[in-house]
Design a protein around this nucleic acid. Structure first.
Lengths: 161, 161
DNA sequence: CGCATTTGTCTCGACGTCAAGATTCTTGTG
DNA sequence: CACAAGAATCTTGACGTCGAGACAAATGCG
């Protein structure tokens, strides 16, 4: 039941037997899983003609609840990209008719990015496809182990708050 | 003991109470942890003037063992980038004197990328710094839970083999 | 109430990655 | 042993992201 990380750790152990490679077993798997998940997400979204970066923006708006609008500044904090990137993303999403820009009534510098009905339909469909794909990936894991895994990961995130 | 993913899941549950958000608890944490880890890696490497992408290449060579050489093709399979990217990376690493290119004695099309002594010193120093930083991140987790987490993650990777 | 600071958004140039194609050499087949 | 098919590497152009700076409007201080 070995995986790619086991091989990686064995190679390091051969070369640097003086080091404690315990943390690698955890963090290396997380990084690799994340890369695999990106590919899986891309595939799940493909049928809905949505790219992962588009989903990230649309999902933030969707989660905000009606009327589905957030400022660009709020959006870039939610999606961890820079302002130049967000301007570009909103431009392209607006070009596809999935969002539009509204002047902020409370701040004349500001803008509100708003999900259009087409954008809401797109993100809802993509999210359902994503959940289906992800559910298949944890299908082998018993429910209690899945829960335990979630709890351990939450613990691991604590240093980053 | 809530984290950012708990908030995210609650927001989705408000908006889409019809969906089973179980998988999100796991996969969303993995993606976010991976992003945080990238930043932590970057910080750990900074003192050694190594970028994460540089470490990825140098570490693959280091793990290969003496004489620390691999073909570009092998390197791009290990690091999951495309050939154009690898050419560019090797160019820059060679410019910094951390690797050099040797003709492959067995295949005149081929090239072997080889770690220089300076490159070996750089990657060894960076790896030790990375392990120190990662050890601090799991310090709160008892050893048995850490092991359990590694095993669960290995299980999760199975569909991707 | 005026002015400096902060906040919010967008613009622009540089950079790294990707995908496809070009080039050079090897391998297998007839 | 010639030649087609395949393999290994590099080149090129397009694209998305970042970071710094520009601009406009709001806020707070004296």
């Amino acid at each position: 039941m070995r995986d790619e990380v086991d091989e990686l750790v064995e190679a390091w152990a051969r070369e640097r037997p003086d080091l404690d490679l315990g943390p690698v077993e955890v963090f290396s798997r997380i990084s690799r899983l994340s890369r695999h998940l990106d590919l899986a997400r891309r595939k799940a979204f493909a049928a809905h003609e949505i790219e992962p970066w588009e989903f990230d923006v649309l999902a933030a708006l969707r989660r905000a609840g009606a009327p589905y609008e957030l400022s660009p500044g709020r959006l870039l904090r939610e999606t961890l990209v820079t302002s130049g990137t967000m301007t570009n993303r909103v431009d392209r999403l607006a070009g596809r008719g999935l969002v539009d820009r509204q002047p902020d009534p409370n701040d004349r510098r500001g803008v509100l990015v708003r999900l259009t009905p087409a954008g809401k339909a797109a993100v809802d469909g993509a999210f359902e496809a994503l959940l289906t794909a992800e559910a298949a990936l944890v299908a082998d894991l018993p429910a209690d182990e899945r829960e335990r895994l979630g709890a351990l990961l939450r613990e691991l995130m604590r240093p980053f708050h």
